[in-house]
Nucleic acid binder design. Structure first.
Lengths: 141, 141
DNA sequence: TTATCAATTGCAAATCGTTTGCATCTGGAT
DNA sequence: ATCCAGATGCAAACGATTTGCAATTGATAA
């Protein structure tokens, strides 16, 4: 399915800006901020405000997913990859992907103890990636 | 242990503003934004910028803990209550507390599959509280 | 108690991410 | 080729948070 089809299927006009942002999102190796995406597109990039609007639409249409690391910046990632969580290295900022999610038991507990029905969750893990751990042990030596 | 002691123990001067914010934080039934806290203190409240600085200090000193719901606002809660997660009702905004945390297995998996050492995490659950669920079913009827 | 000084605060201005109003442009249906 | 709702560019507005700096004030020592 081509990009245009994806957009079409969601009745989103296939404008140049959308095609560009869509590609940038796909190409990103990690969740990207609006500024990141905008910058990656260089000269031909649509206006920054437009990129904001495009991503808003993408989220509504489930082409993109917002990602929050709690640093006040909103990031986005393509929905091509399914639900997962991130391993955010607090030392170098690298992002790992954890394709494991075990919130069901928490959801059950929320329902059991509070009668609360969970519909979505926010879960990100922070720590040290192997590379940074190696460096740290080296410089410590 | 009195408030002053708590502050003292962390070599934080027991200023009026700190005492006030500390009490407001304790009294809050849910994680509160800086504006919330500032507003709750009314007339005698320290400057808003000061409240920001006070909370910054409180976090450093582990008297307060930042809480992120991904809506772009930073909230704080007292650390008197130990580590837990929140049940955020997306309908009425009420906050429930879940004193259960099962990220250890995820941490193990992160280490096993990525060599990533988790040091902290961000986990919030969104959904519908029992009150809102009742209302919804009623109006649906 | 009083003097002293670094820590703290108030105030205003600056930042920064994000949103919005509005006139213009354009994709795609006719 | 025409048309128009939807999309965009641009600039201004916003709201949360931060910062510079001068004035104030806890807490310690005399």
């Amino acid at each position: 399915m081509t990009v245009r089809d994806e957009l079409n299927r969601r009745s989103l006009r296939a404008t140049r800006g959308r095609l560009q942002v869509y590609e940038a999102l796909r190409a990103a190796e990690a969740p990207a901020t609006v500024r990141d995406l905008h910058a990656r597109l260089g000269e031909a990039a649509p206006d920054l405000a437009t990129v904001y609007r495009i991503l808003e639409r993408f989220v509504e249409s489930n082409l993109a997913r917002p990602v929050m690391f709690g640093d006040g910046l909103r990031r986005y990632e393509s929905t091509e990859r399914s639900h997962h969580h991130h391993l955010v290295c607090t030392s170098c900022g690298s992002i790992g992907i954890l394709d494991l999610c075990q919130v069901e038991s928490l959801e059950k507990e929320a329902l059991r103890s509070h009668g609360f029905r969970v519909t979505s969750h926010l879960l990100e893990l922070f720590g040290t990636c192997p590379g940074c751990a190696r460096q740290a042990s080296r410089s410590r030596a």
